[in-house]
Amino acid sequence: MTTVIGQLINALQLGSIYALVALGYSMVYGIISLLNFAHGDIIMVGAYAAWFIMTSLNSFLPFGAVAAIAVVFSILICTLLGAGIEKVAYAPLRSAPRLSLLITAIGVSYFLENMAQMIFGAGAKSVPNIISIGSFHVGKMTVSWTSAITLIVSVISMAVLTVFVKKTKMGKAMRAVSEDVGTAQLMGINPNKTISLTFAIGSALAGIGSILYCCAYAQASPTMGSMLGLKAFVAAVLGGIGSIPGAVLGGFAIGLAETLVSSVGLSVWKDAIVFAILIIVLIFKPAGILGKKKIEKV
């Protein structure tokens, strides 16, 4: 029983990281229909930012202060990077065909990966654990603070995001632009600003995700973003791309499936099984679990 609950906690920890990253994919797709391949690499940059602060400031400041700076710095870097990429690479292609935007996103992803490889080398860097408080007990169970904080942080971020999108004026603008850019513009919404904002928020979530990833796996490498990004992306599609609760649901579903497969000793097959789940869901529910079915007009 305890192992089952232990695995469940692992699944929730992994799932919440996927969910945070999936939210970024989902929001960006919702607003400009772009599969943002660079999103996974933003996480990688965030992880390197955290590593940089943790190792360079370690000798000057107490651990708590360094950790706090690392968190803020890496979220800030991710946010700026996400918004910057949008301004430089995606904004000029607003009216271009979908495919050229996709290729640009791939180009950005390659660029970030190779840049990181050039600056930091191809090997993995070990990131000191930011939440180094050990664990606590619930009955007979031992729960690490890392898992607990990961879960709490992601639930809070998702709640804040939901409130932001549902209740604030800017969130309303985001929803309007994702529904119809032209009409939104007629209502006085600036679509460029709104799209930039969406990228910034998505990337900030990726920044939080990168910190949590570093806490869980304690390393940063140039290619870490591609598989993580792909899985998170699968999570977003599984839940119904463009939908916020869908991305969260998809993230947790993927995390759960992966942990389950690994815990029965089939860990080499976990990628294939996760992807197979996506295929089965898409065949029976082509828009994802919570996605809206679009009615085609002739």
Partner: peptide, 10 residues
């Protein structure tokens, strides 16, 4: 190579 991809697309 990656920069060329982006630049040519833009």
């Amino acid at each position: 190579y990656s920069l060329l991809l982006i630049v040519i697309m833009i």
